[in-house]
Amino acid sequence: MPDPLLELRLFRSVPFSSAILTALFALCGFGAFLFVTTLYLQNVRGMSALTAGLCLLPVGALIVVLAPLTGRLVGTRGPRLPLVVSGAALALGGGTSIWLGPATPLPAVLAMYLLFGIAQGTVNPPITNSAVSGMPASMAGVAASVASAGRQTGTTLGVAIAGTVVGSAASRGGTAFTAAAHDVWLLVLGLGVGILVLGLLGTGRWASDTAARAAALFDGVDAGAAAGPSRGARVHTHGNG
């Protein structure tokens, strides 16, 4: 197709492909965390919806604080460090949550939740940066949109997978629920490791070279877009003459 809805040549850029996978992994893990945690706090620990929400409030506050700081860090030092931090935090959050039980002290539970806030607060700016890094102007909007779609798909998958795993145990609560949630936390741990690996592979010199080669494929598109108005202006001028 001369004008495809999704330009598959974008995926020849390792930073772009890594950003899409990172968005998918990060939001899948966070979506699963929110789903399981809400059920855990209310069905296992007997909290009201309001109290459960207040327990998750520090996670949201941490995301709000870290996101702009991470954006500035990406601008000065690149996306690698935030991606590594995010992946490590998500992996630690999933790994430590395996040990959650009905009687786990609440301060320990809230400390575990902060790891998910760190993971989510440090992942979004480098995703956007990596997705559009090295891309020509004609493809920047498409690249950012695909990254956004990856986030939305990840959230949907996270909730769907977590619901499938713990759904049958949700009504029983107690140790039945926390035992069923082990598989979800193992998945979250694996997703965190995946983000860490992608953060290392997608930010090196080799990855940058693939982004440059991918961008070169669209030089004709940019040249045509730039020449189009000029040709139109010449025709208009000739007509006036």
Rank of each mutant, 00 (worst) to 15 (best):
I20Y: 15
T38P: 01
S17E: 01
T38K: 10
T22Q: 08
V14G: 01
V14P: 01
L21C: 13
S48M: 03
L56N: 14
Y40H: 10
C55F: 15
F16E: 01
L34G: 07
L54R: 11
L57S: 12
F30W: 13
T37M: 06
M47F: 15
G53W: 13
F33N: 09
M47C: 10
P15A: 07
F35E: 00
P15I: 00
T22D: 07
M47E: 03
I20C: 14
L24E: 05
L41Y: 02
A52W: 14
L54Y: 09
S17W: 03
T38C: 03
A61M: 15
P58G: 14
L62E: 05
F33C: 11
V44G: 01
G29R: 11
F33K: 07
L62I: 04
G53K: 13
A32P: 07
A49K: 15
L56G: 15
A32K: 03
L56Y: 14
A32N: 02
A49F: 14
L57A: 15
P15C: 05
A32L: 04
L34T: 07
F30I: 07
S48F: 09
Y40I: 00
T51K: 13
Y40L: 01
T51H: 10
T22G: 10
P15S: 06
A26H: 10
A19D: 02
P15G: 04
G31E: 00
Q42T: 09
C28S: 15
A19G: 08
I20Q: 12
S48A: 08
L62G: 10
L50P: 00
L24T: 09
C28K: 07
F35N: 02
T22P: 00
F16W: 02
A61G: 12
L56R: 13
F35H: 09
F25N: 08
T51S: 11
A19N: 04
L27T: 04
C28P: 12
L54S: 05
Q42D: 01
A32F: 02
V36Q: 00
Y40K: 07
Q42C: 02
F30C: 06
F35L: 13
L57M: 11
Y40N: 03
P58N: 13
G53V: 06
G29M: 06
P58W: 13
F35V: 07
